[in-house]
Amino acid sequence: MKKPAEIVIPETLRYAKDHEWMSLIAPFRVGVSDFAQDQLGDITYVELPEPGAAFAAGQEFGSLESIKSVSPLYLPADGKVAAINERLRDDPGLVNQDPYGAGWLVEIELFRPEQAALLMDAAAYRRHIGTEA
């Protein structure tokens, strides 16, 4: 398990309490945080929606299957899935190896871009995981 100081939390992203991250510039990418992938352990399967599917903020849009469990993924903001990361089909371990880069999950078209302001910044998210650890 990573020590709190080893958990990477990029300043440029915003975070939901369920450990998804979202980028603030288009394409609005969504993934899971370094903390989440470390807790879940090796990801063995990523279930993602079809492009075009729309979800409300907080709604389940897919799941991450790790060696330990099957965990739901929640969209951080209202939006429509514009693209999914096809590489995860063959290489789900990218979520572990590079959670903010090659391990991204979906790109979304935001219905209400102002919702991004409701998400946590890096400092707030670090405090949030401090309360969960």
């Binding site: 352990g41 090796d42 063995t44 060696i67 330990k68 371990g93 572990n96």
Partner: peptide
């Protein structure tokens, strides 16, 4: 221990 740094798959 559930797994170490290498991860449960390796």
């Amino acid at each position: 221990p559930l797994w170490y740094r290498a991860g449960a798959v390796r």
